[in-house]
Computed example of a mutant assay.
Amino acid sequence: MRILVTGNAGFIGYHVARRLLERGDSVIGFDVVNDYYDPALKEARLKRLDETASTSSGDYQFVRANLADRDAVDSCFAAHTPDRVIHLAAQAGVRYSIENPHAYVESNIVAYTNILEACRHAGVGHLTYASTSSVYGANTDMPFSEHRPADHPLQFYAATKRANELMAHAYSHLYRLPTTGLRFFTVYGPWGRPDMALFLFARKILAGEPITLFNHGNHTRDFTFVDDIVEGVIRASDQPAEPNADWDSANPDPATSNAPWRLFNIGNNNPVKLTDYVAALEEALGRKAIVELLPLQPGDVPDTFADTSALETAVGYRPATSTQTGVRAFVDWYLAHYENVPA
């Protein structure tokens, strides 16, 4: 299977590409390797992918280009003819979307349109793409379910990812392109992004600096370990979306669709209070945090909780890594990778 993985220099994309190579797939990576955060970390991930490819039976090729460049995307599809696409490249970050919304238009709207167009012209068998739990926005009906509305995002990042879901449906309907959107819930783990909470907290605790907990630490999050996300992504990609078998063309229900399109939550199905997450990090580091409590930030969602029953029914998988296990794995990687951090 030839699988194009966009954003393979990024956190989740790196882990997905590596797992595919380890099982023997041919992987085409596509990433611009920008400087949204330290490019050295992205280059280190790419080096690890080269090392994995050298010992695996799968072929690996890397395209360093911008997905917003339509010609670059079309050339990649023409040269490599992927069977499937796993689209994980995006401009992430809730707070940064308030500062720089134009970056989200380029990376999450223009680039995504280029992927959709390339997939439909190339006859790709299945497009699996990343969405986010942030699309639930002002919804307070827990646990979050894919069957409930997600029409009131609280920041522009979430709005662009919700747009991706709707754009995918249009292409699935018009061109019968099978698409699967995956709403990730607070992913963390080794090789994570430096702007993520766990990364920031670890660095500051080790340096003896205070960490900031917004909403006075009362957030709850469905923290999901990256290995669980990867397993869900690959299982979903391996089972292409199909038209709704229960669709009645004679009496169509306007609330449903016959397109080969679907959405799944991927979360741990176990919300954890932010202060408990910090406690797990303190235990793993053997250090106490200096905590500064502040009010809720604009755009923040107070709580997230994933209903993962649809994912479990469709692909036979449910994330289950505990916070303590996942945080310990992150700390082990962090201390090994950043040898110059304070002891």
Rank of each mutant, 00 (worst) to 15 (best):
E106G: 00
C119H: 02
L311R: 10
A89P: 07
G299Y: 07
D253F: 05
N251P: 00
K273A: 14
P190L: 10
A122I: 02
L296C: 12
E292S: 14
R70S: 14
F223N: 08
L88P: 04
D253M: 08
S57R: 15
R318Q: 13
E242H: 06
V278I: 15
G316V: 04
L166Q: 13
L293D: 06
G7T: 03
E99L: 15
Y171A: 15
A72G: 08
V27P: 11
R262M: 06
I229T: 11
F185A: 03
D303R: 13
H15N: 13
A122W: 00
R2H: 12
Y334M: 07
T160A: 09
A130W: 00
T140Q: 14
H126M: 02
H80Q: 12
A289F: 07
R183M: 10
A65L: 04
P271R: 09
I12D: 06
R318D: 05
Y104W: 03
R2M: 11
N8G: 05
N164T: 10
G13V: 01
D307S: 10
P39W: 04
P243C: 11
G181E: 07
N244S: 13
S145T: 14
A118T: 00
S26D: 15
N8K: 01
R193L: 13
Q324V: 12
H80E: 14
P143R: 10
F184P: 01
A306C: 09
A279T: 11
V331R: 09
R162S: 13
F223Q: 06
E165N: 06
I211C: 10
D71T: 13
L88V: 07
N215G: 05
P295A: 14
G232R: 10
A280Y: 06
A241D: 10
G192M: 12
D300K: 08
L20H: 06
L41C: 08
A284Y: 03
Y96R: 13
I205T: 06
L116W: 00
Y104N: 01
V16T: 13
R84W: 06
V32I: 15
A79G: 04
D38C: 13
A168P: 06
V32C: 14
Y37S: 11
T304R: 04
L67W: 02
V291T: 14
M1E: 13
I98H: 07
G93T: 03
P254W: 02
T6P: 03
D59M: 11
Y334W: 03
N270V: 00
P302H: 10
V32Q: 13
P153L: 12
A236Q: 05
R262P: 00
V94Y: 00
N34I: 01
S75I: 00
D25F: 07
L177H: 05
R328P: 00
I115S: 02
Y60T: 06
D227L: 10
A241S: 15
L41N: 11
V291E: 09
A130P: 00
T308E: 10
S26F: 01
A310R: 15
Y60W: 15
R262K: 14
A111V: 01
V73H: 07
H219G: 01
Y60N: 09
D59L: 11
K288D: 13
F214Q: 11
Q91Y: 00
A44W: 04
T275K: 15
D332T: 11
F144S: 05
P143H: 08
G125M: 02
K273R: 15
Y104S: 04
G137M: 04
S133Q: 11
N265A: 08
R328H: 10
A122T: 02
A289I: 09
N269F: 04
H87F: 08
